[in-house]
Every structure is written in structure tokens, then in C-alpha cells.
Amino acid sequence: MADKLRAQQQLEQLQARYVGTGHADTTKFEWSSNIQRDSYASYVGHPPLLSYMAIGMGECREKVRGAMIEKMIQPVGKPPEVQD
């Protein structure tokens, strides 16, 4: 039992430390939000990729950057209803 508890604690620690660490009950919403947020952060973080997207959209880089971070707030729409 103690082992299980410790594992649980370690996992919680990891989850607190590293954003996106999953657990047994990760929902589809959590997982996909996390993936999407990672993607958007990567688009913003790599200058050539941001330029590439800005050219495709016909916008300027700074606007695309703002829009990407904005999308990170709710990348895959509203969370699902909680069913108990």
C-alpha cells in the first residue's frame, strides 16, 4: 500500500512540475488540449515556422503570434460536461 502511495505522490509531483504529464484518467479533452497547446507554442517559438504560417495567412508575424497564444487558452473548444 505504501508503495502505491509513494508512486502516487511521485506522479503528482511530476504532474505539478511538468505540464502535460498524463495519468490513468487523462481525458481526451485534456490530452488533446495539451497537444494543441504544445503545437501552438512550438509554432510561436520557431521563427521560420511562424514566418511560414504568417505568409500563408497573409498576416503579419506579430498578429499571428498573438492569435496563436490566444488559441492556447482554449485550443480544442469547451471542456466536456462532467458526468458523475
Binding site: I73, K78, P80, V82
Partner: peptide, 16 residues
Amino acid sequence: EVDYGESDQDPTGQAY
């Protein structure tokens, strides 16, 4: 900054 903690928990979309 923007805190998205609440909007992630709110299925009604109001928090967002």
C-alpha cells in the same frame, strides 16, 4: 498574462 485554469474546467463556456 491570461489564466486559463478556470475556462478549462467550465463546460458551459462562461468562464472562457
